[in-house]
């Protein structure tokens, strides 16, 4: 399969501190590749190196078959970048911003206006095409920033935290657009804090922690890592505050976790576990309200592989 990005031992130090620690990975042409990790993991630094905004301390990378050290300007003609910050020109209207981008990429005059208007329609901004960027809402600014990255019809799109700060509706709309981009054959390199976003959108995900890649796989593959042991989630009709501790004592060797109104038991023979739960409920004069075999989520895989809580990542970004 053709590679859109090939990274070998890419490393970045800032003032003696490692930001990206010898990472290696490939991105296949046409796939949505997710870079998932907390703040400071090195996601944005990696994008900056791959797009020529920052020089690697060590290692090499090829983007669309161009060496980023020597052929970055050539590569820039073929990729688009949506930075975390919506950084279009406040003083220009939406249409003027897109036309200016078209000028920088050498799109002929008539074609660039048509392309700009087409993108404004695609992103639902056509009615506001003559409004200044400064007057746009946060969601509209984000949409225009993405549209600007698509003016020259890139083969590869870097999206750095595309939905941060967007409301639920705008974020959902943006995800639909990312799916459309993939369907049209564009390779997407996506960094995100949001596990569900990565799960929905990405063909493969790299988990990045403290500058190192701890795992690369499909969402299903990552979940399978967490699925080594079966898990059962139960709730009781009457709350039993000591249930987790008591069941943990009765089911020696199994991990029993108290959740919000539920208890999760990892591992063990399902028949033995169920009998122990039913017995415990009966002894305490109540019944089992629900018992569900739990399929691991990407969140479970993330916790298992990184040792980090997804809540920490969301809190860092004031997440949804």
């Amino acid at each position: 399969m053709a590679k859109a990005i090939e990274v070998t031992g890419l490393t970045k130090y800032y003032q003696g501190l490692v930001a990206v620690d010898s990472i290696s990975f490939d991105v296949n042409a046409g796939e949505v590749f997710g870079f998932l990790g907390p703040n400071g993991a090195g996601k944005t630094t990696t994008i900056r190196m791959l797009t020529g905004l920052s020089k690697p301390t060590a290692g090499s990378a090829r983007v669309l078959d161009c060496d980023i050290a020597t052929e970055i300007v050539k590569a820039k003609k073929e990729f688009g970048v949506v930075p975390e910050q919506s950084n279009m020109y406040d003083e220009l209207s939406g249409l003027e911003n897109l036309i200016f981008m078209g000028q920088l990429y050498g799109i002929p005059r008539l074609e660039r206006r048509a392309r700009a208007e087409e993108l404004l329609k695609t992103f639902g901004l056509f009615e506001r095409k003559d409004s200044k960027f400064a007057a746009y809402s946060r969601g509209m600014k984000r949409a225009l920033t993405i549209a600007a990255a698509l003016v020259h019809k890139p083969r590869l799109l870097f999206l750095d935290e595309p939905t941060v700060g967007l409301d639920v509706v705008a974020a959902r709309s943006l995800r639909a657009i990312i799916k459309q981009l993939k369907a049209s054959g564009i390779t997407v390199f996506l960094t995100t804090h949001y596990l569900e976003e990565a799960d929905i959108l990405c063909d493969r995900i790299a988990l990045l922690v403290k500058g190192k890649i701890v795992a690369i796989d499909s969402p299903a593959g990552l979940k399978a890592i967490a699925e080594e042991e079966p898990a059962l989630e139960v709730s009781f009709k009457t709350p039993l505050p000591h249930a987790a501790g008591e069941l943990g004592r009765r089911l020696q060797g199994l991990e029993v976790v108290k959740l919000d109104g539920r208890i999760r038991i990892h591992g063990g023979d399902t028949d033995i576990v169920l009998r122990a739960i039913l017995g415990y409920a009966g002894e305490n004069g109540t019944q089992v309200a629900s018992a569900t075999s739990v399929r691991p989520s990407l969140e479970d895989a993330f916790i298992k592989l990184t040792g980090l809580s997804p809540a920490v990542m969301l809190a860092e970004k004031g997440g949804r």
Partner: peptide, 14 residues
């Protein structure tokens, strides 16, 4: 400061 210079740097211009 507003990040738009980076926007220019991402275009094929040195």
């Amino acid at each position: 400061r507003i990040g738009s210079l980076e926007r220019l740097l991402l275009a094929p211009v040195s």
